[in-house]
Write a protein that binds this DNA or RNA. Structure first.
Lengths: 140, 140
DNA sequence: ATATTAAAAGACCTTTTTGTCTTTTATTAG
DNA sequence: CTAATAAAAGACAAAAAGGTCTTTTAATAT
């Protein structure tokens, strides 16, 4: 999605093939994932010639956290580091406090960073994901 | 394993049933996991009456990181936050730097904390995993 | 209108993870 | 030696994740 937004900022709408290549993922697999993202309203798409994916410019910044929660739930943000079911402040697991600090930072990162903020800062620096400067790897 | 060590410090050797109950995991599933942990040398076991699991007191402190790497590899510790294959300092992904900070902290946590250190500090405070003070949950 | 392009839908298939159960082996108590 | 106990081994099976492919639908350009 960051790649899509980077391209959108250049007035382009990448398609599945281009995105799949960029993230080094299989074409059909990538396609299926974007079907879900479109259905969930995170991206929009246009079929046919000149079609492709794009982020609704009307919508406000989309934090990474929203996407993560929609795809894999909120375990990462509320769950116990040890995976225990009833671990909380009253009944803390051995890692409770230490892991809490890290979780807070993860929370902060994925809340403050958005698809749009990352795309913007990527454009302004030598950051990857805008037609990758290929590091001599084999394609799949 | 922290639970085992806590019990070991009380001169007990918990068995599968006891451990499974403590971590709220299915009996047979827990059993299979410990078969692997024993085979990999992280814990030891004794069969038959009075048997159970224990940590080799001869061995030095076991960092969480060693176990994580043995079970699921080192992706968490070296991989890109976006899962890109060729993301590095020269070709950084949009999240490279920010995620790097968090990864460093995760690394520090799982390197400095060991099964033994967690068991010890759990015994010294009101930390869970030493015959849990059941929070009225259903058993499986 | 028609041909072309590209995503959507959906049917499959493979692999991995998770979970269950039976049989075997080792240990101890009597 | 025998019975009881408890882990090891290994066969299965269900569910989830990962991946592939064909057909359909929508858009565009000629």
């Amino acid at each position: 999605m960051v790649y899509i937004q980077i391209q959108n900022l250049k007035d382009k709408r990448p398609g599945v093939a281009e995105i799949a290549h960029e993230i080094e993922a299989p074409f059909f697999y990538t396609a299926k994932i974007f079907q879900r993202l479109v259905k969930q309203g995170f991206v929009r798409s246009i079929k046919g010639k000149g079609g492709g994916f794009f982020l609704d410019p009307e919508k406000k910044d989309l934090p990474l956290k929203d996407i993560i929660i929609a795809i894999e739930g909120d375990e990462l943000f509320i769950g116990c580091g040890f995976g225990l079911k009833n671990c909380d402040a009253n009944n803390p697991c051995p890692l409770h406090h230490q892991y809490g600090l890290i979780r807070d930072e993860i929370n902060h990162l994925v809340t403050s960073e958005t698809i749009q903020s990352l795309a913007l800062s990527s454009l302004k620096s030598n950051i990857s994901l805008g037609y990758s400067r290929e590091s001599s790897e084999k394609r799949s």
